[in-house]
Computed example of a mutant assay.
Amino acid sequence: MKILITGANGFIGKNLIVELKNKGYQDLYLCARNTTAAELEQYTSDCDFVFHLAGINRPLTEEEFHTGNVQFTETLLQLLKKQNNKAPIIFASSKQAMQENAYGKSKLSAEQALLEYEKEAPDKVFIYRLSNVFGKWCKPNYNSVVATFCHNIAHDLSIQIHNESSELNLIYIDDIIEEWISLLEGVTIRPALDHRYYIHTIHQTTLGKLAEIIESFKESRRNLQASDMSDALVKKLYSTYLTYLPEEEFSYPLKMNVDQRGSFTEILKADSFGQVSVNISKPGITKGNHWHHTKTEKFLVVSGQGIIRFRKLVTDDCTEEEQQILEYYVSGEKLEVIDIPPGYTHNITNIGTSDLVTIMWANESFNQDKPDTYFLEV
């Protein structure tokens, strides 16, 4: 299939192109500002599908709205009619088409031209009214509040909020691309009553909440608190935020608690899932010798050789001196998780000649005021 994409260098265009290539589409006609009239005529004569994404939303003069949004759309349709090419067209319009401003009026006029064209090519025109689209590669300080907030917060710049309670309906770029490619591949999608199409996955929030969420991503490098990725909006915003980090700041240090035995470092924590840490023990060192009432842990040795020992605190059939000590030999050569149940005092000993590296998960974050940790030799 040969696919024509106008506005190929734009935010939506870039995301569409890479996903089309992921899907195996290779015959892409990319139309941008430097595309010649002759090239556009050749594209329209040969294409099987059109994504019409080109448009003007930040012109120097209001006349450019008409030139970029209305006249270009009319030119595109005239070329298709001239070639008798009834390829389906997806048009990226805007919800501002319902507004009485110059941009909205130009988008509405472009829509009307497409609806007239549809009379000659029934069921071939798909007008999508989009608003507040966000995701990777969106230009900050332009027309996306998400892009601006992500960029400014990631770069330690201030953000402006005039009304924290102002409501937003956000659309994630991947949700748009997924629906459009489904339509390209023949999935039937019903329009709304006004003959326009709308992306159904819309995330509602407020301007103040949006800023709070994005600020929490920056703060998470300090407090190690993981965001709630079960919230679809939070997950998509976090993925978006990371793309605005300065490239020299992709990494960040962790606080290592170091002594002669090795080190212990917290990596990530959250009330919803507990805490993940990494423990490094020097050869011959034993760590632990404690037990918990409620806290549980999982140990995963990823490098070195060690032994994990357990002793149950209370048994019915023997004295403390007679209690059996359980032993599990662990190694980075064979990854296995060892569960640490409550009521068992336990320790881990490095029996190798190199550092013993253990990934540890606890079902609760460490609370200094209520550590639920009681020292007792195994």
Rank of each mutant, 00 (worst) to 15 (best):
A54Q: 06
R58Q: 15
P59C: 12
L60V: 15
E62A: 14
E62Y: 08
E63F: 08
E64H: 13
H66Q: 13
G68T: 11
G68M: 06
N69L: 09
N69M: 11
V70N: 07
F72S: 13
T75H: 12
T75M: 13
L79D: 03
L79E: 08
L80P: 05
K81G: 02
K82R: 13
K82N: 14
K82M: 09
Q83P: 00
Q83M: 11
A87C: 10
F91G: 01
A92P: 02
S93T: 01
K95T: 11
Q96C: 07
A97E: 02
N101C: 12
A102E: 11
Y103S: 04
G104F: 04
G104H: 05
K105P: 03
K105M: 11
S106N: 10
S106I: 02
S109F: 03
A110C: 10
A110Y: 00
E118G: 04
K119W: 00
E120F: 07
A121Q: 07
P122G: 04
P122M: 03
K124A: 13
V125P: 03
F126M: 04
F126N: 00
I127S: 02
I127E: 05
Y128H: 04
L130P: 03
V133M: 02
G135D: 05
G135F: 02
W137N: 15
W137Y: 15
C138M: 12
C138L: 01
C138Q: 10
K139R: 15
P140I: 05
N141W: 05
N141T: 01
Y142K: 09
